[in-house]
Design a binder for these strands. Structure first.
Length: 390
DNA sequence: CGGCTTTGACCGGCGC
DNA sequence: GCGCCGGTCAAAGCCG
């Protein structure tokens, strides 16, 4: 697996350091090597009570620390000048930060698109090799597209050559044989599988589900339950819930199909974030080493895989590493896995995506739940988008 | 009474 | 062709 994404994103903090170095507001020395050192300076020199500066709230603490400095024996004018200097520097840095974030957004977007295009091009150029890599996908009929940060996973074998509205796609989902007869191509539905630790029989994901069956699956002592989405009439989305045979604390939820209705707010909010995750997952694998799965380059390699070993192309998210691998070395650089504590002041991502995910990871115990619903929606929107584009 | 779960029957795909 | 298996159906029962 290549580490280009890792290198790309993990380089961000390094790039940021020289900028942050200029933001040593509290040190008498104009050059502090890092925000961490900045904190030490602050605690050691200006606050005998070990005033700690949270990296995210540096601005707030800056005000407090500056106000807390009482040096009556010193002349007031140099301090005022210093404050004004700090203020102007802060404004300059904010502007610079804005520019950097804009540039980063653009670069990230371009990079993701290029990765996707390269992957598709490689598939077409070397179908035999790629067939070995994605044995379950009909390479010539599978496509991955990214638009506006949203990923579209589609298998053109599922739909006719002429344009078809989402409803038609959904209809075919319920009658796979018809699609197979029409195109003489095996029908494959994309799926999203989420592994999460839960003692509950099922994780609530904001949608309403109705159980319509339960079976004992081979090789697993735990029954597999079948659910159908009942949030809207005729919604074809289904999910299977089963405990992991090896670890009964792990609940495996597999989603299939496209919602034909708006998602609940929690799922909708997370949909954008997980679409980014899926984008990274799909775009990071131009040279997979595993023949059965396309592992996400860099950040998602430890928790998400795109498996095409059939019969269904399946994205699997492993959320059983609890807590989430926020402290894993190669995840630190990914926007998806930024925690607030690790975000330097000027490197907070501009989109609400990062805010939402970071907050969810850090504080929301239902993160997994929301994530599940969101991923489910991604597959739906992706297929719909591709169907509409064709 | 409507919606949901339960559970055995049924169906189609697939491998031998 | 047969049996296995996964997935779905639908009748019966439960529950608020």
């Amino acid at each position: 697996m290549d580490n280009r994404e890792f290198t790309f994103f993990s380089s961000l903090p390094h790039h940021s350091h020289p900028r942050i170095k200029e933001m040593d507001f509290f040190s008498n020395s104009p050059s502090s090597p890092s925000p961490r050192n900045q904190q030490h300076h602050d605690a050691d020199q200006t606050s005998p009570t070990h005033l700690t500066l949270h990296p995210v709230n540096t601005g707030l603490n800056l005000t407090c620390a500056a106000a807390g400095i009482s040096k009556p024996q010193n002349d007031e004018n140099p301090e005022t000048d210093q404050l004004s200097l700090v203020g102007s520097e802060l404004r300059r840095l904010q502007e610079e930060n804005h520019n950097l974030r804009t540039a980063l957004e653009q670069i990230t977007k371009s990079y993701t698109q290029l990765q996707t295009q390269l992957f598709i091009a490689l598939q077409k150029e070397n179908p035999h090799q790629m067939n070995g890599m994605v044995s379950g996908l009909d390479v010539n009929d599978a496509s991955v597209s990214v638009s506006d940060g949203e990923v579209s996973i589609s298998n053109n074998a599922e739909r006719p050559q002429n344009a078809a509205p989402p409803e038609d796609v959904l209809d075919r989902s319920s009658s796979p044989k018809a699609a197979e007869q029409d195109h003489n191509i095996p029908f494959r539905k994309p799926r999203v599988s989420v592994r999460a630790r839960s003692q509950a029989p099922v994780i609530s994901d904001g949608c309403q589900w109705r159980k319509y069956g339960q079976k004992m699956a081979k090789g697993n002592p735990y029954p597999r339950a079948y659910y159908r989405c009942t949030m809207a009439v005729g919604c074809p989305v289904r999910k299977q819930v089963q405990r992991c045979a090896e670890d009964n604390t792990v609940l495996i939820t597999t989603y299939e199909g496209n919602h034909n209705h708006p998602l609940p707010p929690p799922a909708t909010a997370m949909a954008n974030t997980t679409s980014a995750a899926a984008t990274m997952l799909l775009s990071g694998s131009t040279s997979p080493t595993n023949k059965e799965s396309l592992s996400a380059g860099g950040y998602f390699s430890s928790m998400a895989t795109l498996s095409a070993s059939a019969p269904f192309p399946t994205i699997t998210l492993d959320l059983t590493q609890s807590p989430l691998p926020l402290h894993g070395s190669h995840l630190l650089g990914h926007p998806f896995f930024f925690s607030h504590k690790q975000l330097p002041l000027v490197q907070r991502q501009p989109s609400c995506m990062v805010e939402t995910v970071s907050a969810a990871i850090a504080s929301d115990p239902n993160f997994t739940t929301a994530l599940v619903a969101a991923i489910s929606s991604i597959i739906g929107r992706g297929t719909d988008a591709t169907a509409n584009n064709s």
